[in-house]
């Protein structure tokens, strides 16, 4: 009897303070936040933030860019590739 009671108690463990499950941080568009209107294709180091290891564009759901900004980033990356500031394909990007 007493053992059964203890079991039941264990089943419903209660915390004094609710345990912190790491919450995902909110995504936001950095271009809108900082009012960046023009994405420069001449700055490959900045554009690398929006590329994965193979040099492909990261999707919006990861970078949090707005539709407008994503279009500008994509355009800038493509221009940078054209003038060999960024590679079209790689195995390891920095």
């Amino acid at each position: 009897m007493s053992r059964a009671k203890q079991n039941q108690r264990n089943k419903s463990i209660r915390f004094l303070t609710s345990p912190k499950i790491s919450r995902r941080r909110d995504k936001y568009c950095r271009f809108e936040k900082y009012g960046i209107k023009y994405v420069d294709y001449k700055d490959p180091e900045f554009l690398k933030r929006f590329l994965n290891e193979q040099g492909k564009l990261l999707p919006r759901r990861i970078t949090g860019n707005s539709v407008k900004a994503q279009r500008k980033v994509a355009q800038a990356v493509k221009r940078a590739r054209q003038v060999a500031l960024l590679p079209y394909v790689t195995d390891l990007m920095n």
Binding site: K37, Y38, D40, Y41, D43, F46, R79, Q82, V83, A84
Partner: peptide
Amino acid sequence: IRHMITRLDKYGIDYAEKRRNGEIGKKK
């Protein structure tokens, strides 16, 4: 060996001017 001409829109003109005055690096 490679060339590219791009048209600057109004924001691009703005940006180019700031870049010339060395304001871009700081803010970034």
